[in-house]
């Protein structure tokens, strides 16, 4: 091989590798990306059983029920629509009724949502971002207000109960 041919071969190899990487990335995106839905979206979206999605919303008050062993069922709501979810495993520390949650999983053939992961977060005031954005848009939730959400950080640990807080009557 001449030097020119060699150089061509090297460049072809490099470009080939990059092409392969691009194809791989595109393939992986088509395979393993989960779309995010809120319960309200599911009315219009056609999701076939077995397709992985992320389902976000609030855990409905009073909906958490323990089944056999470590199976838990609860209802995810966006204030209007609800989706029942079942999950086997240990719930994250900060999973609470009335709190925001993001679950990942798929619908089974009987249209029940089976989650295989429930997102946990580090912060007690945490609201998963997708959920917060949507709920804010729909006016169900705003930063630091009541609605069963954890009180904002400044207030959570001290004094001031949420009830009085919401009316604004007592604020200076």
């Amino acid at each position: 091989m001449t030097r020119k041919q060699k150089r061509l071969a090297v460049i072809a190899g490099g470009v080939g590798f990059i092409m392969a990487a691009v194809l791989l990335v595109m393939f992986a995106f088509s395979q393993s990306v989960a779309y995010f839905f809120m319960p309200g979206d599911l009315k219009t979206a056609q999701i076939s059983p077995g397709t992985r999605i992320r389902l976000g919303g609030l855990v409905e008050e009073g909906s958490v029920k323990r089944g056999n062993g470590s199976t838990v069922s609860f209802v995810v709501t966006d204030g209007e629509n609800t989706v029942p979810v079942s999950y086997t495993g240990i719930l994250p520390d900060l999973f609470r009724e009335g709190q925001g949650v993001v679950t990942e999983g798929a619908f089974d053939t009987s249209h029940a949502f089976v989650a295989d992961s429930v997102l946990a977060k580090h912060d007690e005031n945490y609201m998963p971002k997708e959920v917060a954005d949507r709920l804010k848009k729909d006016g169900v939730w705003e930063d630091g207000s009541g609605k069963g959400m954890a009180a904002p950080k400044e207030k959570s640990s001290q004094e001031q109960p949420a009830k009085v807080e919401t009316t604004g009557a007592t604020k200076p």
């Binding site: 009830k163 009085v164 009316t167």
Partner: peptide, 22 residues
């Protein structure tokens, strides 16, 4: 007072006009 309100299930209400500023 807050505890009392909570005990009997009363929430603080703004009086018309003279309520505390928001």
């Amino acid at each position: 007072l807050v505890a009392l309100g909570r005990e009997i299930g009363i929430e603080a209400q703004n009086t018309a006009g003279e309520g505390a500023k928001p």
